[in-house]
Computed example of a mutant assay.
Amino acid sequence: MSATLSSRKAAAALRTAARVSAEALLVALMAGVALWIVGRMWSVVWPLVVALFLTTLTWPLTRFLRRHGWPPAVAAGAVTVSFVLLVAGIVALIAVPVASQSGELSRGVVEGIQRLREWAAGPPLNIGEDEISGALDTAMARVQDSVGSMVTAVATGVGTVFSGLVTAFLALFLMFFFLKDGPRFVPWLTRQLPGRLAVDVPVVVERSWYTLGAFVRSQAFVGILDAVLIGLGLWILDVPLVLPLAVLTFVSAFVPIVGALFAGLVAVLIALVSNGVTDALIVLAVIVVVQQLEGNVFQPMIQSRGLGLHAAVVLLAVTLGGSLAGIVGSLLAVPVAALVAVVWNYLREQLGEDSPEPESDEAPAPVPVTS
């Protein structure tokens, strides 16, 4: 009797495992199809994502103006124009001092190359002048042989820059409409959905909007922290262009991995050509320490608090996103993980024994209305 009962339990367990496995495979298949569709529509999805990020930064000011009697279109237009002027001012803040000292920096680069040649000619390398010249001639020959590849790379770079400009303009237009018509989106969405979806989907949309805002604010705080710490180190070492480098560090904090590497490289290069090798190495050490603190301490702690995610989840999400989609994957990994957590928590609330009715007392997400 016990053997028969045991076999029945085993068969039931196998059927349950098979059903769960089939359902998991179906969910994975649908997720793969959704990602494929997003990839095919990426030229539209990416400006939309950028516009949402920009809207989370500018929505508090727009909300303040609207509450003080400004018409929605006027408030959205004023905030959008102010944002564009702010970005242009930041670019000018970085470009003008660099251009004014470009001559000094170029002379410093030439002197640095000459020092490098003198160092290579002395002990312990003892590389002769003929060998250095031969190496330079070989490098020039390789450059000449690869002119076609360089032209192709330049053309690709020009296309990338043009695509980036188109994305930026489209994102700004979308941001304006999000700021203008956003509060009408959730009521409109409620009227379009049938039955229980008219309650559940708007609540998830609102919670996702608050989570996205928390991500952008936490990333901005991390960028300010990096800019202050690295700028302080540059100021102590009396490196020129401290303010532009600090602004560049803040802006690059929104682009994972590559942004930090680019800002650090610029800072080390300027320290090298202006202050010498010793200060350049010190700047490099400061940047490495700050970046390690940011990636392993500040960013996981701040984002885990603002997004409701554990620090280990943040680290794993960034690692997985970077391995799957590179820089863009690293940028979107944390907010995507936070949005998945929002949906999961809401499902747990609704599937619980005593699930409360969803309520909302905040302004809805600023996204556009389509009638």
Score class of each variant (00 low, 15 high):
P366L: 05
A75R: 09
V288E: 10
L309P: 03
V79M: 03
S7A: 14
A155M: 13
E23N: 05
T190D: 00
A168T: 11
V239I: 02
V203S: 13
L25A: 14
I127D: 08
S146F: 07
P256S: 05
P47N: 09
G89E: 04
V318H: 00
G134P: 02
R19F: 02
R19C: 02
V334D: 10
V203W: 05
W188A: 13
V204H: 04
L26A: 15
V74D: 04
P183F: 01
V49K: 06
A214R: 13
F221V: 15
V109M: 13
S274F: 04
I282C: 00
M150D: 03
F162K: 01
G295Q: 12
V277R: 14
I270H: 02
L293P: 04
L351W: 11
F221G: 10
A141T: 04
V20N: 08
L52A: 15
A31S: 12
W59T: 12
V247A: 14
A363S: 10
T80S: 13
S304M: 08
E357P: 01
F178S: 14
I236A: 12
P194Q: 00
R40T: 07
P244T: 11
V283H: 04
A11S: 08
I113A: 15
A73H: 07
A365G: 15
S82E: 01
L307F: 04
W70Y: 14
V161K: 04
A10V: 14
A153F: 11
G103E: 14
L136H: 04
A365P: 07
G326K: 03
L339M: 09
D137T: 03
L261N: 06
G321V: 07
R67T: 07
L309R: 03
F215I: 11
Q292Y: 11
A12R: 13
V81N: 03
L332H: 04
F162P: 00
V277I: 14
G231I: 04
L237V: 05
I302M: 09
K9R: 15
S7W: 08
F298W: 15
G182W: 01
V74N: 02
G157I: 05
L189Y: 08
F53M: 13
L189V: 05
V290N: 12
V286G: 00
V199L: 06
A312G: 06
I302C: 02
P60Q: 10
G134Y: 06
Q299I: 02
P187M: 03
V283Y: 01
A333D: 13
A220H: 08
E357T: 11
A73E: 08
L316Y: 10
E23H: 00
R191M: 04
V242E: 01
